[in-house]
Amino acid sequence: MASAAPPDRLSYEALLAGLTFGDAEAGRVFIRRFQSRVFGLAQAVLRDPVLAEDVAQEAFLRAWKHGQSYDPRRGTVAAWLLRITRNLAIDALRLRRAEVMDPDVLAALAPPSDISVEDAALTSEAAGAVRRALRSLPEEQSRALMLAAFYGRTAEEISRFEAIPLGTAKTRVRLGLSRIRALMTTTAEEA
Protein backbone atom coordinates (compact mmCIF):
# COMPACT_ATOMS: atom_id res chain seq x y z
CA MET A 1 0.00 0.00 0.00
CA ALA A 2 1.07 3.53 -0.59
CA SER A 3 1.95 5.33 2.60
CA ALA A 4 1.29 8.92 3.56
CA ALA A 5 3.84 11.58 2.63
CA PRO A 6 3.93 15.38 2.70
CA PRO A 7 1.75 17.14 0.11
CA ASP A 8 4.78 18.71 -1.52
CA ARG A 9 5.56 15.28 -2.92
CA LEU A 10 3.32 16.22 -5.82
CA SER A 11 5.74 17.54 -8.40
CA TYR A 12 5.35 20.90 -10.09
CA GLU A 13 5.09 19.03 -13.38
CA ALA A 14 2.22 16.91 -12.06
CA LEU A 15 0.43 19.99 -10.76
CA LEU A 16 0.87 21.67 -14.14
CA ALA A 17 -0.54 18.55 -15.77
CA GLY A 18 -3.52 18.67 -13.43
CA LEU A 19 -4.08 22.34 -14.17
CA THR A 20 -3.89 21.62 -17.89
CA PHE A 21 -6.43 18.82 -17.54
CA GLY A 22 -8.83 21.30 -16.01
CA ASP A 23 -8.50 19.84 -12.53
CA ALA A 24 -9.61 22.61 -10.19
CA GLU A 25 -7.86 21.21 -7.11
CA ALA A 26 -4.54 20.75 -8.89
CA GLY A 27 -4.97 24.22 -10.31
CA ARG A 28 -5.54 25.67 -6.87
CA VAL A 29 -2.40 24.04 -5.46
CA PHE A 30 -0.39 25.14 -8.51
CA ILE A 31 -1.56 28.74 -8.12
CA ARG A 32 -0.81 28.74 -4.38
CA ARG A 33 2.71 27.52 -5.00
CA PHE A 34 3.59 30.19 -7.54
CA GLN A 35 1.26 33.15 -7.02
CA SER A 36 3.57 35.28 -4.87
CA ARG A 37 6.46 34.78 -7.25
CA VAL A 38 4.35 35.55 -10.33
CA PHE A 39 2.67 38.58 -8.76
CA GLY A 40 5.98 39.81 -7.33
CA LEU A 41 7.66 39.73 -10.72
CA ALA A 42 4.71 41.43 -12.44
CA GLN A 43 4.63 44.16 -9.81
CA ALA A 44 8.39 44.69 -9.98
CA VAL A 45 8.19 45.27 -13.72
CA LEU A 46 4.95 47.27 -13.79
CA ARG A 47 5.01 49.18 -10.49
CA ASP A 48 1.22 49.07 -10.56
CA PRO A 49 -0.51 46.51 -8.30
CA VAL A 50 -3.80 46.54 -10.23
CA LEU A 51 -2.13 45.96 -13.58
CA ALA A 52 0.24 43.48 -11.95
CA GLU A 53 -2.72 41.37 -10.80
CA ASP A 54 -4.17 41.39 -14.31
CA VAL A 55 -0.85 40.22 -15.69
CA ALA A 56 -0.42 37.61 -12.98
CA GLN A 57 -3.90 36.22 -13.65
CA GLU A 58 -3.16 36.10 -17.36
CA ALA A 59 0.10 34.25 -16.71
CA PHE A 60 -1.77 31.44 -14.97
CA LEU A 61 -4.35 31.35 -17.76
CA ARG A 62 -1.52 30.97 -20.28
CA ALA A 63 -0.09 28.14 -18.18
CA TRP A 64 -3.49 26.46 -18.21
CA LYS A 65 -3.96 26.89 -21.95
CA HIS A 66 -0.42 26.06 -23.00
CA GLY A 67 0.79 23.66 -20.31
CA GLN A 68 1.22 20.95 -22.92
CA SER A 69 3.93 22.99 -24.60
CA TYR A 70 6.08 23.06 -21.47
CA ASP A 71 9.41 21.38 -22.23
CA PRO A 72 11.53 20.52 -19.16
CA ARG A 73 14.65 20.46 -21.30
CA ARG A 74 14.35 24.24 -21.48
CA GLY A 75 13.99 24.88 -17.77
CA THR A 76 11.92 24.29 -14.69
CA VAL A 77 8.18 24.82 -14.40
CA ALA A 78 8.85 27.88 -12.23
CA ALA A 79 11.23 29.41 -14.77
CA TRP A 80 8.78 28.69 -17.61
CA LEU A 81 5.95 30.38 -15.72
CA LEU A 82 8.10 33.38 -14.80
CA ARG A 83 9.21 33.84 -18.39
CA ILE A 84 5.54 33.93 -19.40
CA THR A 85 4.91 36.48 -16.66
CA ARG A 86 7.85 38.65 -17.66
CA ASN A 87 6.81 38.70 -21.31
CA LEU A 88 3.22 39.59 -20.43
CA ALA A 89 4.38 42.37 -18.14
CA ILE A 90 6.68 43.76 -20.82
CA ASP A 91 3.80 43.68 -23.34
CA ALA A 92 1.59 45.53 -20.84
CA LEU A 93 4.28 48.15 -20.35
CA ARG A 94 4.62 48.69 -24.08
CA LEU A 95 0.86 48.89 -24.59
CA ARG A 96 0.74 51.72 -22.08
CA ARG A 97 3.85 53.22 -23.65
CA ALA A 98 5.06 53.44 -20.10
CA GLU A 99 8.68 54.14 -19.27
CA VAL A 100 8.70 53.06 -15.68
CA MET A 101 11.83 51.01 -16.04
CA ASP A 102 13.72 50.96 -12.82
CA PRO A 103 16.82 48.82 -12.90
CA ASP A 104 17.03 49.34 -9.19
CA VAL A 105 14.49 46.55 -9.03
CA LEU A 106 17.43 44.96 -7.26
CA ALA A 107 16.20 46.64 -4.14
CA ALA A 108 13.12 44.47 -4.28
CA LEU A 109 15.08 41.26 -4.50
CA ALA A 110 15.41 40.85 -0.77
CA PRO A 111 13.14 38.00 0.32
CA PRO A 112 10.05 39.32 2.13
CA SER A 113 9.01 38.20 5.56
CA ASP A 114 5.40 37.34 4.78
CA ILE A 115 5.80 34.70 2.10
CA SER A 116 3.82 31.50 2.30
CA VAL A 117 5.22 28.08 3.06
CA GLU A 118 4.87 27.18 -0.61
CA ASP A 119 6.85 30.21 -1.70
CA ALA A 120 9.42 29.65 0.98
CA ALA A 121 10.16 26.32 -0.64
CA LEU A 122 11.08 28.20 -3.78
CA THR A 123 13.17 30.81 -1.99
CA SER A 124 16.14 28.56 -2.11
CA GLU A 125 19.80 28.84 -1.41
CA ALA A 126 20.31 29.15 -5.15
CA ALA A 127 18.13 32.25 -5.25
CA GLY A 128 20.13 33.69 -2.37
CA ALA A 129 23.34 33.03 -4.24
CA VAL A 130 22.00 34.84 -7.30
CA ARG A 131 21.01 37.85 -5.20
CA ARG A 132 24.44 38.00 -3.63
CA ALA A 133 26.06 37.67 -7.03
CA LEU A 134 23.94 40.51 -8.40
CA ARG A 135 24.94 42.77 -5.56
CA SER A 136 28.59 42.02 -6.19
CA LEU A 137 28.47 43.25 -9.79
CA PRO A 138 29.64 46.73 -10.74
CA GLU A 139 26.55 48.94 -10.65
CA GLU A 140 26.56 49.65 -14.38
CA GLN A 141 26.67 45.94 -15.23
CA SER A 142 23.92 45.18 -12.76
CA ARG A 143 21.68 47.91 -14.21
CA ALA A 144 22.20 46.75 -17.78
CA LEU A 145 21.52 43.14 -16.83
CA MET A 146 18.36 44.08 -14.93
CA LEU A 147 17.06 46.08 -17.89
CA ALA A 148 17.52 43.06 -20.14
CA ALA A 149 16.44 40.29 -17.76
CA PHE A 150 13.41 41.95 -16.14
CA TYR A 151 12.34 44.59 -18.68
CA GLY A 152 13.24 42.73 -21.87
CA ARG A 153 15.23 45.66 -23.20
CA THR A 154 17.54 45.07 -26.15
CA ALA A 155 21.11 46.33 -26.20
CA GLU A 156 19.98 49.15 -28.46
CA GLU A 157 17.30 50.21 -25.98
CA ILE A 158 19.72 49.99 -23.07
CA SER A 159 22.15 52.11 -25.02
CA ARG A 160 19.54 54.85 -25.41
CA PHE A 161 18.17 54.52 -21.86
CA GLU A 162 21.60 54.69 -20.26
CA ALA A 163 23.01 57.14 -22.82
CA ILE A 164 25.97 54.91 -23.56
CA PRO A 165 27.45 53.52 -26.81
CA LEU A 166 25.79 50.36 -28.18
CA GLY A 167 28.99 48.35 -27.80
CA THR A 168 29.23 49.35 -24.16
CA ALA A 169 25.64 48.29 -23.53
CA LYS A 170 26.28 44.87 -25.08
CA THR A 171 29.48 44.42 -23.11
CA ARG A 172 27.80 45.29 -19.82
CA VAL A 173 25.01 42.76 -20.39
CA ARG A 174 27.41 40.05 -21.51
CA LEU A 175 29.87 40.58 -18.67
CA GLY A 176 27.08 40.82 -16.13
CA LEU A 177 25.47 37.55 -17.15
CA SER A 178 28.82 35.76 -17.40
CA ARG A 179 29.82 37.03 -13.99
CA ILE A 180 26.57 35.79 -12.44
CA ARG A 181 27.13 32.43 -14.09
CA ALA A 182 30.64 32.20 -12.71
CA LEU A 183 29.56 33.16 -9.20
CA MET A 184 26.70 30.65 -9.26
CA THR A 185 29.10 27.91 -10.35
CA THR A 186 31.54 28.80 -7.59
CA THR A 187 28.77 28.76 -5.01
CA ALA A 188 27.55 25.38 -6.22
CA GLU A 189 31.04 23.92 -6.03
CA GLU A 190 31.57 25.22 -2.50
CA ALA A 191 28.27 23.80 -1.31
Binding site: Q43, A79, A108, L109, P112, L134
Partner: peptide, 11 residues
Protein backbone atom coordinates in the same frame (compact mmCIF):
# COMPACT_ATOMS: atom_id res chain seq x y z
CA UNK B 1 16.18 31.74 -15.48
CA UNK B 2 17.97 31.97 -12.15
CA UNK B 3 17.70 35.76 -12.29
CA UNK B 4 13.92 35.56 -12.66
CA UNK B 5 13.72 32.92 -9.93
CA UNK B 6 15.60 35.26 -7.60
CA UNK B 7 13.09 38.01 -8.30
CA UNK B 8 10.71 39.67 -5.88
CA UNK B 9 8.18 37.55 -3.99
CA UNK B 10 5.05 39.48 -3.05
CA UNK B 11 1.81 38.08 -1.69
Amino acid sequence: DALLLAGPVVT
